[in-house]
Structure formats: structure tokens, C-alpha cells
């Protein structure tokens, strides 16, 4: 039995609280660990792109490109899609259809874009070749 529970029972025994109050307090105590367990996992703040290449250089000193983009910047960036003028949107739709992607940009709503960026949290892309490695992930 934990300390808080003992304290409640002592208060009940001393007549400081009623049985009903004690019950409510114990119920609240029981809920506490659940609430702590339910706490959402911290969201990543950045999208990171790391490219390493050892080609043509000393393997001990590889070429590295490391880019960190705030997720908020991605969120702001995807809002640009809503600014595409109707005429340009038709051109884009047409070009995408020609490439085998029948996709209508006008169907994209800001909430869809938000969802898209939210899903990037889970994203990890790792491409490795003999001398080079590309990694995209959120941190």
C-alpha cells in the first residue's frame, strides 16, 4: 500500500474525512498512474536529413551534409500549396496526371496537410550504398 493511500485511511480513521471522501480520494489516486501512462510521447521538433559519402575521399573523413528543418517550418511550407493560383493548379494536375499520378491539388485541405506533417513523426528513410548513406528522420 502506498503512502498516500495510508494517509487517506489515517484521515478516515481520525474522522477528518468521510468514507465517501476517502473513496473519491483513493479513486483519484488510482487514476493518477493511468494519466501518467497516457501522456503523449514528445513530438519531434525537427526533420533531419543526413548524407554521408566516402566516395573519392579519405574514408576516415567522409563528406557530410547535415540539414535540420524545424517541423513548424514544414507546416508553414505546406500552406504554400493553398496559394497556388487556379490556373497553375490545373497545369500541375495535368502534369501529374501525365506522370501517372491522377491527383487533384484542389482536394488538399489545410487539415490534410497538417495530418501529413504529423505523420512525418514516424518517418525514417535510410538508404545505404557502398560509399554513401542517406538518412531522413525526425528528432
Amino acid at each position: 500500500m502506498n503512502e498516500n493511500r495510508i494517509q487517506i485511511l489515517e484521515m478516515l480513521a481520525a474522522g477528518k474525512i468521510t468514507a465517501g471522501e476517502a473513496e473519491r480520494l483513493i479513486a483519484a489516486l488510482d487514476k493518477q498512474p493511468q494519466a501518467a501512462g497516457d501522456s503523449p510521447k514528445s513530438k519531434p521538433k525537427y526533420l533531419r536529413v543526413v548524407v554521408r559519402s566516402e566516395e573519392g575521399h579519405n574514408p576516415n573523413d567522409p563528406s557530410v551534409v547535415n540539414i535540420r528543418v524545424p517541423m513548424q517550418l514544414l507546416r508553414a511550407g505546406v500552406k504554400l500549396a493553398s496559394l497556388i493560383p487556379a490556373q497553375a493548379r490545373d497545369h500541375v494536375n495535368c502534369a501529374m496526371r501525365e506522370q501517372g499520378m491522377p491527383f487533384d491539388l484542389s482536394q488538399i485541405k489545410p487539415e490534410n496537410l497538417e495530418e501529413l506533417v504529423d505523420q512525418l513523426d514516424e518517418l525514417t528513410v535510410d538508404v545505404s550504398q557502398k560509399y554513401s548513406n542517406v538518412k531522413v528522420y525526425c528528432d
Partner: peptide, 23 residues
């Protein structure tokens, strides 16, 4: 709307980092 989006983009560049290292 354009100004608001541009402002958003500018405001959210905080924390951006670009590193390039070679030889």
C-alpha cells in the same frame, strides 16, 4: 494570405541548421 504564409515561413526558420563538411 500570402503575407501570412510568408511570415509563418520566416518565423519558423528558427532552429534551422545546415552543415556541409568535406575533406
Amino acid at each position: 494570405r500570402v503575407l501570412s504564409v510568408c511570415w509563418d515561413i520566416l518565423a519558423n526558420t528558427k532552429g534551422s541548421q545546415i552543415e556541409v563538411a568535406s575533406a
